[in-house]
Amino acid sequence: MTPQDLQIFLQENFAAWVQALDLTVTQATPEGVTLSMPITDSLARVGGIVSGQALAALADTSMVLAAIAHTGEARPIATTDLHTQFLRPGVGSAIACHAKVVRAGRALIFTRASMNSADSGKPVATATATFYVP
């Protein structure tokens, strides 16, 4: 799947509030995907720091798209487990999230994501998730 394919999937299948994050798929291969999320006033909390909720949604969305890119087809995928670790305040113009599939079985897909400040490259958060594929 191409970045454009995944961008269309994101626009057609995700909730409006996820789309309001203004996510852009910048890279996509069967090994992983990269998304960018601009840090806007609506996502920032005191001090211009991106909210943890926005980072968790970015991670979850990125890992879903990584799972779809890995399988090569648009399928229903349900998050069964999501763990997010916040490492430092997310500041700057955007957050880049790289997500990859760690292991894919018939019913479960295990993923990992790393989020970095697009300006400094410093790590902001990491996440892991397990998805059920009916």
Rank of each mutant, 00 (worst) to 15 (best):
124 V>K: 03
124 V>D: 10
112 R>A: 15
10 L>W: 00
28 A>F: 05
122 K>M: 09
109 I>T: 15
117 S>G: 15
8 I>F: 02
22 D>H: 13
66 A>M: 04
18 V>Y: 00
48 G>N: 12
32 G>I: 05
89 P>E: 13
122 K>R: 15
101 V>H: 01
62 S>Y: 03
64 V>K: 01
73 E>R: 14
64 V>G: 07
36 S>V: 12
47 G>A: 11
14 F>Q: 01
89 P>Q: 14
88 R>K: 14
9 F>E: 06
80 T>V: 15
84 T>K: 00
124 V>A: 15
101 V>F: 01
33 V>D: 05
99 A>D: 11
49 I>K: 04
126 T>P: 02
118 A>P: 08
69 A>M: 02
134 P>E: 09
26 T>R: 10
7 Q>L: 08
98 H>P: 04
19 Q>L: 12
82 L>D: 05
72 G>W: 01
105 G>Y: 02
52 G>Y: 09
28 A>E: 04
65 L>M: 10
53 Q>E: 15
31 E>H: 03
96 A>S: 12
81 D>G: 02
53 Q>M: 14
65 L>Q: 08
16 A>G: 09
57 A>L: 08
111 T>A: 14
109 I>N: 00
93 S>A: 13
116 N>P: 00
128 T>M: 13
77 I>C: 09
117 S>Y: 03
1 M>G: 13
66 A>F: 02
71 T>V: 05
27 Q>H: 14
9 F>Q: 06
17 W>K: 04
26 T>K: 04
93 S>Q: 10
69 A>D: 03
134 P>F: 11
6 L>M: 10
65 L>R: 03
34 T>Y: 06
89 P>M: 11
68 I>R: 04
17 W>A: 06
71 T>R: 15
96 A>L: 14
130 T>G: 13
79 T>W: 05
74 A>H: 06
43 L>S: 14
121 G>K: 03
44 A>N: 06
56 A>T: 11
4 Q>M: 08
133 V>I: 15
40 T>V: 13
64 V>T: 13
80 T>H: 01
122 K>P: 00
79 T>Y: 06
129 A>E: 08
63 M>S: 12
30 P>G: 07
114 S>N: 14
65 L>T: 11
29 T>G: 01
129 A>R: 00
76 P>V: 09
12 E>L: 08
38 P>C: 11
54 A>D: 07
58 L>W: 00
85 Q>G: 11
105 G>R: 01
57 A>N: 08
11 Q>C: 05
7 Q>W: 04
112 R>V: 09
30 P>Q: 02
48 G>V: 09
69 A>I: 04
110 F>Q: 09
47 G>K: 11
